[in-house]
């Protein structure tokens, strides 16, 4: 039996052929190594992310996340829901909390859920994979399993927004969270605690609707990583990863920069440090190859 078991909400962007399929693949590898069992919520739906408000208003939006929690309660009872996507985690947890605070809304959501033959009791803790790593696995235990310490790689921890605010990770500050740095150190890599853009917004969904404004912010995020001598950026968020990695050509053309900064997930770092190869760590899913990490992965 696995050490820990969770009800897993992977989210749209983590599916096969989607923009963060490399997150899903490396999370699977990481969980194999850490003996964590993820039971996907059967028939989970999109949470509508942070842009859902525009057409979704309140009740339809909350119903979307409520459906996922209700399905989890039905099929994976007594298991904490764990999300790997920042927006999935935020929407689901926000829904759970809002429905705890607002009895009428809770009643209305259940009326809507009844149309899909579902009931919500709303007793399930909603957690992020980073919380699982820090609180259930722990840095020390994580460090013990390292087979290939990531010696000599300087990795800037880009926490971003929604993994960090408004809920964040217990014991961490909103302004200067250190858990990615601690994670990097646990894996034998060099953290960059002075990386000043670690909680800067990348634009989120506005990278699509307001690309110029977002790309200016992304430029700053990458520039600061270079200024701090980083070899690569690590992030827990699929949209942060995508936004910061894939527009570097466009940004270079616009700003006259020569950026070629790899942006990887924590799950890829752990997979490599635990001795897995590039494919298992989904390093073939990078648009900008993380060559230093690949040299460890073999």
């Amino acid at each position: 039996m696995a050490k820990f078991e969770y009800s897993y909400y992977p989210g749209c962007s983590s599916q096969t052929g989607a923009s963060s399929s490399n997150l899903m693949r490396s999370v699977d590898t990481m969980c194999e190594e850490l003996d964590l069992k993820l039971n996907p919520i059967p028939d989970w739906n999109c949470c509508s992310a942070s842009i859902g408000y525009g057409s979704g208003n309140v009740l339809p939006r909350l119903s979307l996340s409520a459906r996922n929690i209700a399905l989890s309660e039905q099929h994976n009872p007594n298991q904490d829901i764990v999300a790997t996507c920042a927006a999935c985690w935020l929407s689901t947890r926000e829904t759970a909390e809002r429905l705890h605070q607002d009895e009428n809304m809770f009643k209305d959501v259940n009326t809507a859920l009844a149309e899909a033959r579902l009931t919500l009791t709303n007793k399930t803790p909603i957690r992020h994979m980073a919380e699982v790593l820090i609180e259930d696995v722990g840095y020390e235990s994580l460090a013990r399993g390292v087979k290939k310490p990531l010696q000599g790689i300087r990795i800037a921890g880009y926490v971003g927004c929604q993994t960090n605010r408004p809920f964040g990770i217990a014991g961490e500050s909103f302004e200067n969270p250190l858990y990615l740095d601690k994670l990097v150190e646990s894996l034998g890599g060099d953290s960059v605690p002075t990386y000043e853009k670690k909680v800067q917004c990348c634009g989120g969904a506005l990278a699509f609707s307001e690309p110029e404004k977002s790309q200016a912010m992304i430029h700053g995020i990458i520039e600061a990583a270079y200024d701090n001598g980083a070899d690569m950026i690590v992030t827990p968020c699929p949209l942060c990863q995508t936004n910061v990695e894939i527009y570097q050509d466009v940004i270079n053309a616009k700003f006259g920069s020569k950026f070629e900064m790899p942006v990887v997930y924590y799950s890829q770092l752990i997979s490599v440090a635990y001795g897995r190869n590039s494919k298992d760590a989904a390093l073939d899913g990078q648009l900008i190859r993380a060559k230093k990490l690949e040299s460890f992965a073999g």
Partner: peptide, 21 residues
Amino acid sequence: PTLWFAEVFWNNMLKKGRVNE
């Protein structure tokens, strides 16, 4: 543009229950 995108996103997501990127 964000109002427009929010609407496109909502309709896209709702059609099959998951986003078609």
